[in-house]
Amino acid sequence: MAPLPDGFSYAEWNAAYNGLSFGIAAMGSATSFFWLQLPNVTKNYRTALTIAGIVTLLATYHYIRIFNSWSEAFTVSSKNGGDYTVQLTGSPFNDGYRYVDWLLTVPLLLIELILVMKLPQAETVSLSWKLGLASALMVALGYPGEIQEDLSVRWFWWCLSMIPFCYVVFTLTVGLAEAASKQPSSAAASLASAARYLTVFSWLTYPFVYMVKSVGLAGPAATMYEQVSYSLADVLAKAVFGVLIWAPAMEKSVYSDAFLGWSMPSQL
């Protein structure tokens, strides 16, 4: 991992600190919500909702580790009532936790979307493997460039990681369009499409944040923007996305209950 640059202002340090803290709060709250909602959906969708909770639980753990590593890397102090000053302690800031988190959670995010769409079993298994492996490969190819300061090396790994990235985005936007339109109700179809497009929108932020150090930003400002942007993108891609997994699961559960209640003869 690359060492942190010196010269952080208190505002820059505090922005990253608060961004990481927000990630912990959002992911932890989402985990509780998803698992408390399990009894409210039918068995067909409990696996998807369970995975949504696992994703945010893993993210909560890793955000706690990143937050602690960030706090340990700095000393913040104020002397004689003056402005706060930020100094490096010499302890490393381990941002690798973020990539470990992505390697574990990104394939699961796609699997939970596929499960909630209730595709035929063969198609579910095939898509889960293809998208899961492609997303894991995307993360694995991105990490070697993330820890490099050499811009040519960063661009090289960025280009490689964009190959599986484009495949996943194409599948979400085009390959699953027909399946999304065939949901049992118009509300469920709309929610499934929203989950697909939220995934694409949130994912599009990552390649741009990845290259933030290649567009004229450097030093503490680049690190601050990187940490805050990744934190916000993660909350969208995991916590908010999980809500859009829960919503169609609830809608289809209600639809299923209403259908069964209408079709089953009353017991006298």
Rank of each mutant, 00 (worst) to 15 (best):
S181Y: 07
S190W: 14
S214W: 10
F156D: 10
V139H: 01
L151V: 15
A239M: 02
L204T: 01
L204S: 09
S193A: 13
T199N: 09
K213Y: 15
T171K: 11
V200T: 05
A177D: 11
A179M: 06
Q227D: 11
Y167W: 15
P164A: 02
Y197E: 00
I245A: 02
L151W: 14
G242V: 02
V215I: 14
S202I: 00
C166N: 11
G145N: 00
F170V: 12
L176D: 07
W203V: 00
V174Q: 03
M224Y: 09
L217R: 08
Q227V: 14
W246Q: 03
S181N: 13
A189M: 08
R154E: 14
V139T: 01
M162W: 11
I245S: 01
R196W: 04
A195I: 12
S229Y: 09
A180L: 09
D150N: 07
L204G: 05
V235G: 02
F208E: 03
A239T: 11
L217G: 13
S181F: 05
I245P: 02
P220Y: 10
A237V: 01
S190C: 07
A194H: 07
V243E: 02
V168M: 02
L141N: 01
V235P: 01
L217A: 14
L151P: 12
G219C: 04
F165N: 06
E149Q: 11
W203S: 07
A140M: 03
P164S: 01
L236F: 08
L160H: 07
A222R: 12
Y167R: 08
S186Q: 13
C159W: 14
S214T: 14
Q148M: 11
K213S: 15
L236H: 07
M211Y: 11
A239D: 05
L217H: 13
Y210K: 02
V243H: 03
T205N: 10
E178H: 10
R154D: 12
T171S: 09
A180Q: 06
L244Y: 12
A239K: 03
V139F: 00
L160F: 07
C159I: 15
V243F: 07
V215D: 12
F241I: 00
V200K: 04
V212L: 14
Y225W: 14
M162I: 04
Y206D: 05
G216C: 03
S214A: 15
A140G: 01
K238I: 08
F170I: 12
